[in-house]
Amino acid sequence: MNDDFLTTDCERARAELPGFVYGELAADTRTALERHLEGCVPCREELATLRDTRRLLDRWETPVVAEDARVLARSIAAEARAERAPAPRRGRLLRLSATLAGAAAALLFTLSVLGASARYAGGRFQLDFALPGSGPSADAPQWSTAELDQRMRAIAAQEVTQRTADMHVDQQELLQRCSLMTKEELSQEILRLTQVVDLVLAENQRALDTRLASWKRDADVRDLEQRQAINDLATYIRPASLTNR
C-alpha cells in the first residue's frame, strides 16, 4: 500500500503515532512517517508528548503478591471438586444447625491458624491457602538434623502466631457476614469449606512430608560427611601423636 500521504497529511500521520511509539508499524509505513516527522515540527512535538505519556504509564506498578502457585492451584482444584460433590444429607444439616454460630467461628479460627485467608465475595466465602512450610522457598536449608527439627517448630509457631493476629480483624467481618446468612446457607457454606479444607490439607500434608523427608535425608548426609571428616582427621592426627610419644 502507498504510504506517501503520510509525507503531507498531518492528521493521518498522527493516527499512526501510537503504532510508531509502540513499534508496531510496518517498515514502509514507518519510513514514510519518519519522513513526515523530519519536516513537521507540530507532529514531532505530538510524538514527544506521546512518548512522555508512555513513560508516565510505567509509573503505575501493580503489587507483587507472593503466593505459591502450586498451593493456589490445589485450592482451586479442591474447590472445583467440592462443588461437584453430592449435596449433604438432611440429617447432617439439622445436626449442624444447632451449633452453627459456634461452628462458623471455630472454622474461621481454624482457617486462620492454618494460614488460610478467607474472603467473602459473590455470595460465598473464598479461600487462599498458605500453609506453614509450604511457601515458595523450595531450597533445602543447610541445617543439621537437630537444628532442622528445632527450626521447623520455631517457624511453624511464629507463622501461626502472626497469622492468628493478622486474621483477627478479618474474622470480625466474616463473622458479621455469617450472621446475615440464613441457617441453611451458612451450614452449606461450612460443609463446602470443610470439604475444601480437608482436601487441601491432605494434599499439602503430603507435599510437606515429602519436602521434610528430603530435608532430613540431606541433613543425614551432611551429618555423615561431618563424622567422616572427623574420623579422617583423627586418622591423620593419630600417627603424629604416636610419633611424638
Partner: peptide, 10 residues
C-alpha cells in the same frame, strides 16, 4: 493445571 496457574496467576 499447576503449571498453568504458575504461568498465568501473575
Amino acid at each position: 493445571f499447576e503449571a498453568m496457574v504458575a504461568r498465568w496467576n501473575e
